[in-house]
Design a protein around this nucleic acid. Structure first.
Length: 770
DNA sequence: GTTATCGCACTTTTT
DNA sequence: GTGCGATAAC
């Protein structure tokens, strides 16, 4: 592979701290992998002494695959099966790997961390469940006033600032923080009781363990070369961990891309770049500014947008690539039409066999670019390629927005796949099984026991659970033992005792079988024993039950990957991996379908044709960011990320009026659209009052004629706010004539009947004064 | 004491 | 639209 001059410097800087400042698609992954290859092949560095950290499993896997190809080794997708290769995984996977290794190697009682080998990883959902229980039952607080999510946020923040519950007192300066401290203390105890870690704990506990000089020494010697990708997304704890590991040999290379920092809400801290410059003042700095993916229009626009951020470094991403299509801006009258337009564009482009330029427009510059391109040479770069469904990527700000797009795609018979929403592991049936497995694996895991104790129904309800809780707290025994001794609990009547005892015997049976069966077989055994299929049929009907059983088969299928391990380990590792997978991991490349996902998830993807939908104020940028300049800047970076996912064609759409929150809402156009230079944009608008037109469109099957009609319709004139006042009578083409009942700035509340009012932006609303 | 139903509040982004 | 919680019915 041909690296450019700067990439070459990065590659050759081995025994020295290195800071790579990268921009979108500037070939940083290629640089990193080439660097690894160079270290192993040329410099004869032991691959096992390399540690490469990424943020997503997808990124890690991609790097592993590239390295595997270069070194002619088959890379295994299981961290415990790596042989004689660099350790390339996500932060969380690596630290869990370390934690388990430490717990096996060292005497637990001598460590400062209260953790047993068979710990579980709690999801965000599990964590909230624990906290909610604390708020309501332990602290007796009003859960509406003290929301679990809020408390969770404070605790997370505390852990990211190296504060344990005991230390938290030092930052308490308000009533809420006082309560947070109370909750945190109990939370810590409960997590130890449950023998579970949340995502923050994985990092925090790792850091605590690495402060043990023996342990630190071991890992410093083992991993002498450390690389961290997406460094802008690290939080302070991650920073400290990496710093400790690298402090002996100082062979640390990090990739920094501040324009793509979109995780500050998760604790990612831009201060880390300052910390790095302070701690590694001798570091060599390399800037990668040339983009090899997108057309000029896209790069220029993305640049212009992000330049509105005051905190961005003065830097410009540039490209040699051609201009190709302008950015297409779509304004639809309403949300349904917006989705429909997107669907129809995709349909039209694909069914017409329209061609997308795979590389560049001009064959000459194309050749030039391929030569310069940092792509793998194995990558076939035919000049023209027929447009497929899989060339299309639809991006939105929040998960729930997918629904409308899905409906539109369905009605056009377009195959699609939503990434993230209703994640595989989030489905009820999959979760049920996982909860059984967790309870079998870890007798302390109250959360799991409670979830399954009445699934399928065993006539064990809230009252019984309450009593069990009291006994658990009084005797501080693992939950499983409380169940075992249920007969001695006086507060329960006989049949409740019998039900619980039956459940206990069932679980005991499962536990015994877990020592003998591999995960996949164990799941099948559980399903059979529970008569789970009939339960599903009763609960959801046979059709849905079939569907759900398919998911379980899929789960069993996944579990067979763990059959190579001895039985107890296979369960342990299956559960670990399930907790650490991300949605993105399910993205495959073979099948031909449109992909839908949030912008955050898309960070590691590129696509020829990209749609950014719902580009409206209060959606994107998100309403919660409008007040806060810092958050607004993060939203803008998010826009930058979204735009730079596109290689050739970029569509940005919005609707003048949309139905959500059970209301019709008119959002002003996203400020980010206004920041795109006019000359990069092609504007398409459908008139707001064209509902009748639309009805006639739906009979016109050909998109082209429909498309040509909308392109002819000019933008509607805006209303002048000054023309309107409270109690003015206005007319609306759809809702008739009524009154403005309140008016604040542009937002008017209009009463269309005595009981029904709507808020709309008077400036763009299709209303006239009469 | 457990389950069914209705009504309400709620919707950021993720390892 | 929807998932969850409080209340009514079994």
């Amino acid at each position: 592979m041909q690296l450019n001059e700067k990439q070459e410097i990065a590659k050759n800087t081995i025994d020295w701290p290195l800071l790579i400042i990268a921009w979108a698609w500037s070939g940083k992954t290629a640089t990193l992998t080439t660097r690894v290859e160079y270290m192993i092949k040329e410099k004869k560095i032991d691959p096992k002494s390399l540690l490469c950290v990424t943020f997503t499993n997808k990124a890690a896997r991609e790097m592993r695959e590239r390295i595997g190809k270069k070194l002619w080794v088959v890379i295994d997708n299981n961290i415990y099966r790596q042989r004689n290769l660099p350790l390339m995984w996500t932060f969380h996977s690596i630290w869990v790997f370390f934690l388990k290794e430490i717990l096996w190697k060292y005497d637990v009682s001598q460590l400062w961390v209260n953790l047993k080998k068979d710990f579980l990883i709690y999801s965000e959902e599990d964590k909230l469940k624990v906290l909610k229980d604390i708020i309501v039952n332990d602290l007796k607080l009003d859960e509406k006033q003290f929301k679990a999510r809020q408390i969770a946020y404070y605790i997370s923040e505390a852990k990211n600032s190296f504060l344990t519950a005991k230390d938290y007192g030092s930052v308490v300066d308000s009533y809420i923080k006082e309560k947070v401290m109370d909750a945190y203390k109990i939370y810590e105890v409960k997590m130890i009781e449950n023998n579970a870690l949340d995502f923050d704990d994985i990092l925090f506990k790792t850091l605590q363990l690495l402060k043990n000089p023996n342990i630190l020494e071991y890992y410093q010697e083992k991993y002498k070369y450390i690389m961290v990708d997406e460094y802008q997304d690290t939080n302070l704890v991650q920073y400290e961990i990496v710093k400790l590991l690298a402090s002996k040999y100082r062979n640390l290379a990090v990739v920094w891309d501040d324009w793509q920092s979109i995780y500050s809400w998760r604790g990612a801290d831009m201060r880390n770049i300052l910390n790095f410059k302070r701690d590694y003042s001798e570091a060599i700095v390399v800037k990668l500014e040339q983009n090899y993916r997108s057309t000029k229009h896209i790069i220029e626009s993305a640049n212009c947008v992000v330049k509105n951020n005051k905190t961005a470094l003065e830097k410009t991403l540039w490209t040699d690539n051609e201009h190709w299509e302008k950015i297409c801006l779509i304004e639809a009258p309403d949300d349904k039409l917006e989705a429909s337009i997107v669907a129809k564009i995709i349909k039209e482009k694909v069914s017409n066999n329209s061609v997308i330029l795979n590389e560049m427009k001009d064959p000459l510059s194309n050749a030039e670019n391929i030569k310069q391109s940092s792509r793998d040479s194995s990558d076939k770069s035919s000049e023209w390629q027929v447009s497929k469904y899989s060339d299309n990527l639809i991006l939105y700000r929040t998960n729930w927005q997918s629904r409308q797009i899905e409906e539109a795609l369905m009605s056009e018979w377009i195959p699609y796949k939503v990434v993230g929403w209703l994640k595989f592991y989030d489905r009820k049936e999959v979760k049920d099984i996982l909860w059984y497995l967790r309870a079998i694996y870890n007798s302390n895991d109250v959360i799991s026991f409670k979830r399954i104790i009445n699934t399928p129904s065993r006539k064990i309800g809230s009252r019984t659970l309450e009593v069990l809780d009291i006994y658990k707290d009084n005797f501080s025994l693992p939950y499983f033992q409380i169940l075992e001794n249920v007969e001695e609990i006086e507060d329960l009547n006989n049949w409740a005792k019998r039900s619980v005892k039956e459940f206990f015997n069932l679980m005991l049976n499962f536990k015994e079988n877990a020592n003998r069966l591999e995960v996949a077989d164990l799941i099948e055994y559980i399903i059979k024993k529970l008569d789970y299929k009939n339960y599903l049929i009763e609960e959801f009907g046979s059709e849905e039950a079939d569907w759900k059983m398919d998911n379980i088969k899929e789960l069993i299928n996944l579990a067979t990957n763990y059959n190579w391990l001895w039985v107890v380990e296979s369960l342990s590792q299956f559960l670990e991996e399930v907790s650490l997978v991300s949605d993105l991991d399910s993205v495959e490349n073979e099948a031909d379908y449109v992909t839908l996902m949030t912008i955050h998830t898309s960070k590691w993807l590129e696509q020829k044709r990209v749609f950014i939908v719902w580009a409206e104020e209060s959606i994107f940028p998100h309403i919660r960011s409008l007040e806060n300049p810092k958050e607004l800047e993060e939203e803008r970076r998010l826009m930058y990320v979204a735009m730079t996912r596109a290689k050739k064609e970029l569509y940005i759409s919005r609707a003048s009026e949309r139905f959500y929150f059970g209301n019709y809402v008119r959002n002003p156009i996203s400020r980010f659209i206004k920041e795109i230079p006019k000359e990069c944009i092609e504007d398409y608008k459908m008139e707001i009052s064209s509902f009748s037109l639309w009805n006639s469109f739906s009979s016109i099957d050909s998109f082209s004629s429909w498309w040509s009609i909308i392109t002819k319709i000019k933008a509607r004139e805006l209303n002048d706010i000054a023309d309107f006042a409270v109690w003015d009578k206005v007319s609306h083409h759809k809702f008739g004539n009524w009154l403005i009942t309140s008016l604040t700035w542009e937002i008017a509340e209009i009463a269309f009947s005595w009981t029904w009012t709507k808020k709309m932006n008077i400036k763009i609303a299709p209303v006239k004064k009469i």
